[in-house]
Simulated assay, not measured.
Amino acid sequence: MRLFQSPNVVVRVTYRSEWPDGFGARGWKLDIALDDPEIIASTPSPGERINTSVLVHDILDHYVSGFPPSGHRNEAMALIQLSTRTGSDPRSDYEQMIDEDLIHGVVFGESMRSFLPPCAVRLLPPEVLSGKEIISFLVNIMGHDSLRTLFLERFFDLGYRGVPLAQASWNRRGLGYDRNTAIGICLQWLLEEADRILVNGSFSFATGFFQIGNHACQITLDKPINIMFSKLV
């Protein structure tokens, strides 16, 4: 059953039973992120504390909100969108990125110097330093724990700065920002239905697209089978 004629947003997705990305993950990716090595395919399973999956996060909190799928700054903003939409606390995700990446001098999407808050940049010498050199320099001045706290505060600051940008992006697409929770739950249901069909049919590959509106959403699989699921928001 077709619930609408002109969806506000169309997002293409691809499914594989095993992605050739070195991880062998089963799941889904946005087509706009197929060539991004930082994006790992996700299953429809929601998190322990979050009622929607990573793919829904990629669709709503990144794509619809206007934030590219990778990069620490983009993820900082997208995680606040996830928090707004689901009530989750982004702190643990921020801390994981700090401990796994930033504290080792790794920043995706920009240089360490441009990611740091101005108060930390003012402490740095003028010469060009690598990310690891910057971290070593700041640890010597501030200490490890203080630098970690600074990064955490930076993530929250960047995240909340993204709120008006996300609201404007939703408005430009004709979607009600206050509908984000309901739309997310709707997309999650559609994703689980489509995934069930592919798993039960032992399909190794499929393509399709989500159609997203304020009052209804739809997922259509167009290869190798043609099937559609619709749901009111």
Rank of each mutant, 00 (worst) to 15 (best):
E153N: 13
Y94T: 04
E75A: 03
M142T: 05
T43D: 07
I39N: 02
I32M: 10
D101C: 11
H57C: 05
E100N: 14
T86P: 02
S65D: 03
S130R: 11
G71F: 12
Y177L: 03
Y94E: 07
S65Q: 02
Q96W: 15
S70P: 06
N180K: 09
I141S: 11
P68V: 10
F229A: 08
Q167D: 09
P125G: 07
S136I: 12
S169W: 09
S111I: 08
M228H: 12
G24L: 09
P7Y: 03
R172Y: 10
R196A: 12
S42D: 05
G24A: 09
R113T: 14
A78C: 06
F137N: 08
I32S: 14
P46K: 02
E75N: 01
E193G: 05
I39P: 02
L129I: 09
G87M: 06
F151R: 04
L60C: 08
I225R: 06
K132W: 10
P37S: 11
K29F: 01
A33M: 07
G201D: 00
S70Y: 13
L30Y: 03
R16Q: 15
R73S: 11
T207Q: 14
V199I: 15
I197W: 04
S202E: 14
R154D: 06
R113S: 12
L158T: 00
L138E: 01
P20V: 08
W19N: 10
